[in-house]
Design a protein around this nucleic acid. Structure first.
Lengths: 242, 242
DNA sequence: GAGTGGTCTAGACCACGAG
DNA sequence: TCGTGGTCTAGACCACTCC
């Protein structure tokens, strides 16, 4: 629990923002914050930069640091915060860990698309893992995961019903640290309507991506189809041209 | 051209990586780099962190810093460096610039929400700009834009039928460089179905955000409702531990 | 134990914004 | 001019990896 200073400070400021501790949406200046938390200004800067990255605040040189009003407005249940995605095998939503129901688990030849994403060759095999994730017993996401069998020959039904990433950490002492994601939306299929309790006109949000281990090896190609109300992605975007 | 140190260093290291200056995919350690570039280790760290964010390198505590092999192998997947979005007033999709049809243009008192987002006071006015964007004559997006009149008093129907951002660049010599975006999806309304040629069960993708000028001033509050097939957002994501 | 990245500090100086 | 964020430094100590 004894996290780094900047993590603690960042969490505390975030909490304060949620609690409405800054009604004018202006944060104290960095030097004051440093004094308040009794840490160096560098640490404050680091903490604030995390929040900037998450799209929660923005800074204006010469003026101060401000809460992003959009952020407060979107108190989504499922917040993807900028580059700090709550997605992954160990999802966390408002502190709650969703439960997993294994729908399917088999080995299939990798499709062309999967071959490309996971750097496989023609004829290589992948696990297909279909899971339903629930929050409070309410299903909110169907997930299709594809993992090269060569990478994790020991995968089985039990492992796959829990966290694959924890398994990777234990067995291969690698961590899954980043992913490349595409976000889309589509009309829901009949099956999705049934599983996610959607009406016929309600769509699914789609997050599709490749998850990488810390050595750069692609571990999983994953397609997540979410109840549309759970798709809420916040991002700070640079429109800069290099 | 005289950029910050960390920008220069970051660019130089990136160039070296492209040139294959690190055939074993291992970068020199941070202390060595600091000496090489004659800057502090902190500056090196900052430069490297930019590259980590872009997915070009990764660090392993105790071991060193390494080039992401995927980055070199398949740059197609990694074309979106960090958060570089193609959204903005000057959308570009496959090189084509969409055409704009002005649906509505008026001045209204800013809502509370807009006041907060755009740093306005009670009673301030904003332009409301409702536009339909088409690609190849095919409508793909309805856009609601809100801009403080105080910021761009000279805005008129003609300007607004083209690019607001180009106008800003010319008139105020500011560029629009950043935004905070929230991405969602919803069932489409009747009006949207008509305008975007959607079937009743087909959704809209929603991108809502504040666009900032390079000095940090919020310029526009915008809600974009897209034909779902045009919503495609790519992002690199760090699955940080929090 | 040596090498390497992670965190943190204290302070200096710069650049921008507002009064 | 003063308040504020941006950059940079030099150095200390910690934590992890690998020999």
């Amino acid at each position: 629990m004894s996290d780094a200073v900047y993590v603690t400070v960042q969490a505390d400021i975030k909490a304060k923002i949620y609690q409405g501790a800054y009604p004018d949406l202006k944060l104290p200046d960095e030097r004051t914050l440093a004094a308040t938390y009794a840490v160096s200004r560098s640490s404050i800067k680091r903490a604030l930069n995390v929040l900037v990255q998450q799209g929660i605040i923005f800074k204006k040189r010469g003026s101060g640091t401000f809460v992003n009003p959009l952020y407060l407005k979107n108190q989504a249940i499922f917040q993807h915060e900028g580059n700090n995605l709550g997605v992954s095998d160990s999802f966390r939503i408002n502190g709650q860990a969703p439960s997993i129901e294994l729908l399917d688990f088999r080995v299939i030849p990798a499709t062309k698309e999967q071959q490309q994403a996971l750097f496989l060759k023609e004829g290589d095999f992948v696990y297909e893992i279909k899971r339903l994730r629930k929050l409070d017993g309410k299903p909110f996401m169907i997930e299709y995961g594809y993992v090269p069998i060569a990478l994790l020959p020991g995968l089985n039904k039990e492992t796959v019903s829990k966290s694959i990433y924890e398994y990777v950490e234990k067995e291969k002492s690698r961590t899954v640290t980043r992913s490349f994601m595409t976000i889309m939306a589509e009309p829901s299929t009949k099956e999705e309507q049934a599983l996610l309790k959607l009406r016929a006109n309600e769509p699914v949000g789609i997050m599709e991506g490749i998850f990488f281990m810390d050595d750069g090896t692609p571990l999983e190609y994953s397609t997540m189809r979410l109840h549309y109300q759970y798709l809420r992605y916040n991002a700070f975007v640079s429109l800069a041209a290099e």
